[in-house]
Design a protein around this nucleic acid. Sequence first.
DNA 1: AGCTTGACGGACT
DNA 2: TAGTCCGCCAAGC
Length: 111
Amino acid sequence: MKDKKTSFFEDVYAVVKLIPKGRVTSYGAIASYLGSKGSARMVGWALIASHPLTDIPAWRVVNRNGLLTGKQHFENANAMQNALESEGLTIIDDQIQDFEKHFWDPAKELL
DNA sequence: AGCTTGACGGACT
DNA sequence: TAGTCCGCCAAGC
């Protein structure tokens, strides 16, 4: 469709919504899956716009270090960590433990 | 119309 | 190994 209005955002939302419970992914992984690898910032920017949507489990998206860098953008920084722990994850000092074990790569899992 | 910032990531020193 | 710089793309000022 010429209406390529398919904003980078909508694409990000679709992937984030597909993240299974108890799993997490990184901005770069999503960006790479979308084809805009290198523009991980855009993914984060899109998630900011996803705030009012509340249908986007943005808390399942962290940086490649498994660090909750974006918790600051949530209404309550504790909400992000709490949500992840509620899904069976362990977070210490805003860092996900065994992050690689819970890592969910759309380019592989979603494929 | 141009500069700065920003939920990142990778490369370089 | 750790610290620093540059690059990506869009929005705000």
